[in-house]
Structures are given as C-alpha cells and as structure tokens.
Amino acid sequence: MGKIKKYLPGIWFLDPPKDISLDGYRIDNVIQYTDFVITLYFGIVVAALIFFIWRYNARKHPHAVYDLGNTKKHRYLTIAMGLLVFFSIDVVIETMSFKDLKEAFWKFPKGEKVVRIEIMPQQYAWNIRYPGEDDIFGTDDDIVPPQNILHIPVNTPIVVQLTTYDVIHSFYLPNFRYKQDATPGMVTAMWFQATETGNFEFACAELCGNSHFKMKGYLTVESEEDFNGWIAAQDPEVSEEDEEDDWGDEEADEGVPTQWGWLWKELK
C-alpha cells in the first residue's frame, strides 16, 4: 500500500509524514511488509467468503455435507494453517523488528560527534537543554533555549534523555517515526539522526490534560555550522518567557521551571 497511493478523498490511503531520519525507513519497511501479507491473507479470506456465499447458499446447495472436521487429517490441516500464518507473518516481522532494534533503535551511538539533549516536558510545553561548552548537564553554562524550540544538526546522532516536570508526556516525532514516553521519577532515552534540513513539528502523544492538543514543538534541522551558530547565540541558562505563549491556560502560566537539569545518566 505504501507505494500505490491514489488520493481519493476519504477512501484511499494517505501518506505518513515525510521521513527525514536515518532509520525511519526500517519502520516503514516493517509496516509495508505487514501491509502486504495481511492484504494477501485478508484477500484470501474475502475470496473464500465470496466463493462460499456464491457456491453454498441454500438455494444452490440445499443439503449441507455432514462433516465434523474432527479427523486427524483435519486437525493437522488446521494446525498447519495456523503455523503457516505464524511463520509467514509473525516470524518474519519479528525477525525484521528485532534486527532493527538491535542495529538501530536500541543501539545508542557513542563517540565525540553525538549531540546530547535533555528534554523535560511540562504541562503543555517542552523544556529543552543543551549541555553547553563544558559538555556537562546541570552546570551554569547549560544552554536553555526558549520553550518548544528544538534545533538539531543534520547527519549527526542525537541522543535525548527525557523526564517530566509533572504528568506523563510522550515525545512524538512523526517525521522520524519515533516516540518515547516521559514518565515522572525516571529518565528514558532515545536517539535519532536527521538526514534532511528543514522545519518540522513534534508533538505530545500521551494525554496530558486539557491543552494536550496544543502541546506542540518546533524542530529545526540545520547544518552543523548553522546549529553551532544558533547555540552560540543563546544565552546560557536564561529561561526566557515564551513569547508565543498564547495558551491562555492558568496551568501554563505557572511559569518556566528553573534549575531542572540532571546529570546525564549512563543508560545501558
């Protein structure tokens, strides 16, 4: 289905958001393989149903064949069907998925070039923190851009650690096919890598209150020079009031949390 996209409003398939990530294609591939096999199996079911309705309706076939389907042959046949489905769909997508997890999503990048970011959502806004010059979080030279503004360099692995200021949120990057929950009391991690520059959006995918739908962030993917220039232009540890604060909710007016950075956790 992924490739055959005719756009008839309301009936045919819509595109997922543009994939701008290094590994998003893996998820698209799993989805497309699943699309393919389940369409095949569903087609078989529908074909069988239509055939049975046409051939065995009471008018055409008034006397049913007495068949309990309990002989050994029947049982082996049904079990074989079950195993066929299991091996043709489940085992394949499981293998694909495990491989992708091992090679990409759960294999966190190491080395110099990794950009590390701490993100702490609060009700209806995203707080974002870069380690600053000393590369250590929770120090005075941390860079804290205005809320909801996330800049990342292109073609560089980004490792994000998440926790939350209040309730559960979920950091959802549609263009990267990725999301990760931010849960109180624990730090979760994810990584991704952009392959294209541009302006994109990210969202909160877990219900977090009345203005959940407005909890939007602006993601800018830019070249490394632009990114370094942008970082340099930010004042360290100044939490500016969000100029675009038009939420109109009392909750959001509690203000920006200060002093929220945590020491980078070494996660497995």
Binding site: A48, F52, Y56, N57, A58, H61, A64, G69, T78, V85
Partner: peptide, 20 residues
C-alpha cells in the same frame, strides 16, 4: 496468532460445503 488463525480457519471451514 497461531490459535487465532486456527479457529478462524475453522470458521471458514464450517461454511465450506454448508447450506448457507
């Protein structure tokens, strides 16, 4: 999915050669 597809197959096989 193994037991599900087995009984699903049984449903279809019930229709087979029936008088619907």
């Amino acid at each position: 999915s193994i037991p599900s597809s087995i009984f699903f197959f049984n449903w279809l096989a019930t229709l087979w050669r029936g008088s619907l």
